[in-house]
C-alpha cells in the first residue's frame, strides 16, 4: 500500500531557482526508503513537503492515496513523526527534556505518560535523569537522540528522518539503527531516511532514491542502486565512502 506519494512535485523557494523539479516517489508500508544526494540537492526540502510544512509549487503530495490537503493535516500528523536535520534548533531551550519528548503524546490528546517518555529515552540510550534536564546540558549526539526519542514516543506509522544518526558515534549509531529496525519489524513503522551514510542506508532501507540538483536521477532496490549504480553521481557517491583500510 502506498503510504506517502510525491507525484511530479516541483518546488521553488521565494525568488529562487527551482529546488525540486518533477519528483515522483512512493513510500510503501513496510518498505523503508532512503533519499541520498549531494549537499543542497533538495533532500530536506522534499521532506518538508512530505510533512506538509510547505506546499509544492507543482504536482501533489498524497497520503494514504488522497491529496494532503490542509484539512487532513491533523489526521496526517497522528501517523507521521519527523526528526529534523538540526536537532538543537528543534528542541525548545526553555523546556525540560521530559516535556519536549512528551510533546507528540500531548499533540495526540494522550496523557504525557512519564513511563512512556522514560521508555523512549531508555531506548535511545539516555539515562533516566535526562527527563528533568534542559537541552543545553547535553552534547550534540545526546540532543540528536532526544529528537529521536520524541519522534518514536507515540508509535508513529511513518517516520521522516533527516540525517538522524549523523551526529552519533558508531557504537551509538549501531544502537539507534537496531532500534529503528526493530520498530519497523515489530510496530509497523515505515521510515523515509535522508542519510549520507550509505552503510546505514544499506542496513535500514530496501529502496533508495538519488537526488541531484532537485531531480531524482535514479531509484530502485537499494541493492540495485548501490550494487550497480547507473548514474555517475551515484557512482561518485559510492567511491567517496571513507572506509577503514583492511
Amino acid at each position: 500500500m502506498a503510504l506517502l506519494e510525491a507525484d511530479s512535485v516541483g518546488f521553488s523557494y521565494r525568488g529562487g531557482t527551482p529546488a525540486l523539479t518533477d519528483v515522483s516517489l512512493t513510500v510503501r508500508a513496510g518498505r523503508n526508503v532512503a533519499l541520498v544526494g549531494e549537499s543542497g540537492a533538495g533532500k530536506s526540502t522534499l521532506l518538508r513537503l512530505l510533512l506538509g510544512l510547505a506546499r509544492p509549487t507543482t504536482g501533489e503530495i498524497r497520503f494514504a492515496g488522497r491529496p494532503l490537503t490542509r484539512g487532513r493535516l491533523r489526521e496526517y500528523r497522528r501517523a507521521v513523526q519527523a526528526v529534523f536535520q538540526d536537532p538543537y534548533s528543534s528542541l525548545d531551550p526553555r523546556h525540560r527534556i521530559g516535556r519536549i519528548v512528551a510533546e507528540p503524546l500531548r499533540g495526540l490528546g494522550l496523557r504525557a505518560d512519564p513511563a512512556r517518555v522514560a521508555a523512549a529515552l531508555d531506548a535511545v540510550g539516555l539515562p533516566a535523569d535526562t527527563a528533568s534536564r534542559y537541552p543545553h546540558e547535553f552534547s550534540g549526539g545526546q540532543r540528536q537522540r532526544v529528537a529521536i526519542a520524541r519522534a518514536i514516543v507515540c508509535d508513529p506509522k511513518v517516520l521522516l528522518a533527516d540525517e538522524p544518526v549523523s551526529a552519533l558515534d558508531l557504537t551509538t549509531r549501531v544502537r539507534i539503527v537496531d532500534l529503528l529496525a526493530s520498530l519497523c519489524a515489530e510496530r509497523d513503522l515505515t521510515i523515509m531516511l535522508v542519510s549520507h551514510d550509505l552503510g546505514v542506508v544499506a542496513e535500514l532501507c530496501r529502496h533508495t532514491a538519488v537526488l541531484e540538483s532537485g531531480r531524482l536521477v535514479e531509484q530502485g532496490d537499494t541493492s540495485q542502486v548501490l550494487g550497480s549504480p547507473s548514474h555517475p553521481y551515484t557512482r561518485k557517491l559510492l567511491a567517496s565512502v571513507p572506509r577503514l583500510a583492511r
Binding site: 541520498v36 544526494g37 549531494e38 549537499s39 536535520q85 550534540g140 540525517e163 549523523s166 551526529a167 549520507h196 550509505l198 561518485k236 557517491l237 567517496s240 565512502v241 571513507p242
Partner: peptide
C-alpha cells in the same frame, strides 16, 4: 565534527 552534515563527496 565539521563534516557530519556533508554527503561523502563533499566531505
Amino acid at each position: 565534527e565539521p563534516t557530519t552534515a556533508l554527503d561523502v563527496t563533499v566531505q
